[in-house]
Design a protein around this nucleic acid. Structure first.
Length: 252
DNA sequence: AACCAGGACGTGA
DNA sequence: TCACGTCATGGT
């Protein structure tokens, strides 16, 4: 009863070159290098900090600084942001995070102790405030009781943490080389002809990247952030993407 | 003024 | 396993 599972990560580009498992997917690395040249370092994950001039909280990126997060507080903030940004623009998440910060609700204990309405009011700008409030409570309880580095399975067992959020938490809060796949990633691969189906399985796409890159969390962090930066440039509205400089990579 | 954003979950084929 | 409905605010 040996089930053959090797066929899973076969991907071909528009010239029908087949990329298989660990066999060098040079194109994935080439795309990364080209995106990095185009957009430079993104400095994800952004953290809420007080602006020295205005004395107001703002969301700040830290390009080329891979030490962050440095504290459990910052780790937790990233986790909260990862949940709040589900199907929601980061601009709205910033507002919610700042609300939480100003209400002293950006810690697991304070979230657990907060009354429902106050919590919901704070995260309202990020939408889905009913379910997100509940999920913040769940993740807060988990965060307080957890031990050591969380595994992907452990994160996935928490209600409200799906694959993308779990990988985001591992990659950005815990510096683990777990590649994040989002809708933009799918769209990019599809536009470049690297996947045939826009709904290709999450884990298949994840493995494609992880098998094509050095297992370095810094590269994984930058790559995902670069894809988002690229998507914001070219994937707005319904118009066709004009990622000419990436398609040139396919010309030998 | 529709469309969609750094998705996840529950349900019924 | 897969397709679909639901959740909600606010920017463009």
């Amino acid at each position: 009863m040996t089930k053959n599972k090797e066929k899973k990560t076969i991907v071909s580009d528009r010239n029908n070159r087949i990329f298989k498992n660990n066999h060098n997917n040079g194109i994935i690395l080439a795309i990364y290098k080209r995106l990095l040249k185009e957009y430079s370092y993104q400095g994800w994950w952004p953290l809420i900090e007080k602006d020295a001039k205005t004395n107001r909280y703002i969301s700040r990126y830290h390009p080329k600084n891979y030490d962050l997060p440095r504290t459990p507080e910052q780790q937790f903030e990233i986790i909260v942001g990862a949940i709040l940004t589900q199907n929601t623009s980061w601009l709205q998440v910033e507002k919610a995070l700042i609300n939480l910060k100003e209400k002293n609700l950006l810690s697991p204990k304070s979230i657990l102790n907060a009354n429902e309405d106050s919590l919901k009011e704070a995260i309202r700008p990020a939408g889905y405030f009913n379910q997100k409030a509940e999920r913040l409570k769940l993740i807060s309880e988990w965060f307080i009781n957890k031990k050591g580095l969380p595994s992907r399975e452990e994160l996935l067992s928490i209600k409200g943490i799906g694959k993308e959020t779990a990988d985001s938490i591992l990659l950005y809060a815990y510096k683990q080389p777990s590649f994040v796949v989002d809708a933009y990633t799918r769209r990019l691969l599809f536009n470049l002809g690297l996947i045939q189906n826009i709904k290709e399985k999450y884990d298949t796409i994840k493995e494609l990247f992880e098998n094509s890159l050095p297992k370095d969390f810094k590269i994984f962090q930058e790559y995902h952030a670069l894809i988002v930066a690229h998507a914001k440039q070219f994937y707005k509205g319904k118009g066709k993407s004009k990622e000419y400089f990436l398609k040139e990579l396919f010309n030998d």
